[in-house]
């Protein structure tokens, strides 16, 4: 079985430009593997293409102008290229069965109850029944995230704080059945304590099933170094174009962080190095 959830070859992500035939290339990745069963965090400056990258992987946007992404699940491999966007039902099916998403904004439906909002992901998957164990688990998860289930369940999102809504949106994403969860700054609106709680809950969810993976975008370097299993740093190639170099992909090992050039770094050194790469 392949131990990588995504394998990328010669990828070029680009957007259409108004009034111009040529697309604007924003990200180039020559070769990259994202490990399965791990929490992978993508770091980089604002506008470096982090969101574009996870949107592309999560079939949220068709930005592939060149190259191929292969998604591995169990014994199957699904090729993700521009062609797949011609089959919208298949795209929806893959997103439904395999992926889950957390965004910086909660995107809770304002006039749905909290309970209905939490269950949206599962309901869309067709799971409109919960076993007592699943119900208890949900209550426990809410408790871990500092939310009293019985207190909030009938409230409307507008009655909750931004942080509470962010955590609810996180719970909504992880109680959905998924193989890969994508997060675009999922802890962006949370304080340090709640961010750490969120990352711990995410790790627990990913570790519960061996083929689950998480791919997050973040600006929080210390949290990423503290809680990530794999860190990918986007570096500027030229102008507004960014790339991922083998030396900027770090994997946590027993001895420290190991990158593609076999350099081993401690947490502090990695943090320092990431800041240097991001600055440039």
């Amino acid at each position: 079985m392949n131990r990588n959830v995504f394998e990328i070859h010669g990828l070029e992500c680009a957007y259409d430009r108004k009034g111009k035939k040529e697309k604007k290339v924003v990200l180039q990745i020559e070769k990259l593997s994202i490990p399965m069963g791990k929490v992978t965090i993508i770091l980089g400056l604002s506008g470096s293409g982090k969101s574009t990258f996870i949107e592309t992987l999560g079939l949220m946007n068709n930005t592939i102008s060149k190259g191929l992404i292969t998604y591995h699940h169990e014994e199957n491999a699904i090729g993700i290229g521009p062609e797949i966007w011609k089959r919208p039902s298949e795209l929806a099916e893959i997103r439904n069965r395999h992926f889950s998403f957390i965004f910086q904004n909660d995107f809770l439906m304002p006039y749905y109850s909290t309970g209905e909002n939490i269950l949206t992901g599962r309901l869309i998957q067709g799971f409109d029944e919960m076993t007592p164990a699943e119900n208890d688990e949900l209550k426990m998860l809410c408790l871990k995230m500092g939310l009293g289930f019985d207190e909030i369940i009938t409230k409307k999102p507008v009655e909750l704080s931004v942080g509470q809504r962010q955590r609810l949106s996180f719970i909504r994403a992880i109680i959905k059945n998924f193989a890969v969860i994508f997060g675009d700054e999922p802890a962006g609106n949370l304080d340090e304590v709640n961010s750490a709680l969120l990352m711990d809950a995410l790790h627990e969810s990913v570790n519960r099933q061996c083929q689950r993976s998480a791919i997050l975008v973040s600006h929080n370097i210390p949290l990423s170094v503290a809680k990530g299993d794999c860190i990918i740093v986007l570096s500027r190639q030229s102008g507004e174009q960014y790339e991922i170099l083998p030396g900027n992909v770090y994997k946590r090992t027993a001895n420290g962080w190991l990158n593609g050039t076999n350099e081993v770094l401690t947490d502090d050194k990695l943090e320092k190095k990431i800041r240097e790469v991001v600055k440039n």
Binding site: P88, A92, R95, F99, F101, F107, L108, P110, T120, I124
Partner: peptide, 16 residues
């Protein structure tokens, strides 16, 4: 609510 609709689509609901 178009952002919320985007979220529904991301969760895999079909346009149809």
């Amino acid at each position: 609510i178009k952002k919320n609709l985007g979220n529904f689509l991301a969760f895999g609901i079909k346009n149809s």
